[in-house]
Amino acid sequence: MIPTTTVPGAATRTRRSGLNRPGFVTYGLLGAFLAGSVFPLWWSFLIGSHDSTVLARTPFPLLPGGNFLRNAATVIDQVPFWRATLNSIIVSTTVSLSVVLFATLAGFAFAKLRFLGRGPLLVFVVATMAVPTQLGVVPLFIVMARLGWTGELTAVIVPAMVTAFGVFWMTQYLRGTLPDELIEAARVDGASMIRTFWHVALPAARPAAAMLGLFTFVATWTNFFWPFIVLNAKNPTLTVALQQLQAAYFIDYSMVLAGATLATIPLLVLFVVAGRQLVSGIMQGAVKG
């Protein structure tokens, strides 16, 4: 058998056995927090299902009205909604896959291969996590304009194709989980480096890679600043399209909030499917995206 694998962060968790189940205060507080977390989304749907005149009336409605689909149709008519959704899917998927691939490659090298300068380079990677690269927007924009990429999805995808955090995360993971023996065995077998990576490291990295991909996906999907600057109304991502709804002279708030609801649905679906993975990803040390 493989010598005991140690997964970082997954250290054996002794539950606080012997202690009683928590009382209603704990549940009450948690329940209140949860209600606060859900309420804004509910409100968004609620107003999005009425017409905007409802906001000026008191008391506010408590139950959804029947206008959601009509408002949603207005949203789709008002902004290139399907285009934006497709763009968001393309950008988020491409960026996630690319980050996972490049981060795993680099992580594999940092964790398992010996080469000159490995230590300092890794320190450098970690240090760049603290660099607010968003502040380079002006030159980045100039560069994109020179390349003729403004308005194109490539302008959003390319700068995000690999992240320092991803590299660091995969390095940590592979260092802890991938036994050197496996690699040596593959090498002795005559496998090239890239084969070793592909057949040994990548499969071993799968759990961490999935989480990295997931977080990258969410972060890319919700990203606004750079896409807002470099894309335009014709070819937006979902967040960019969403802000256009508010930026109109005649603002129909039930339409705006129907749009906010609509734009949130895809990630809610993702949350239902992969919420557990997100939770355990954070608990294993994922950082803010």
Binding site: G148, A233, A247
Partner: peptide, 19 residues
């Protein structure tokens, strides 16, 4: 799409980029 304000910013961008 936008308000005039946003249309203005977008047109600026396009002219600056020449595309």
């Amino acid at each position: 799409a936008d308000t005039a304000d946003n249309a203005r910013d977008a047109l600026r961008n396009s002219l600056g980029a020449n595309a």
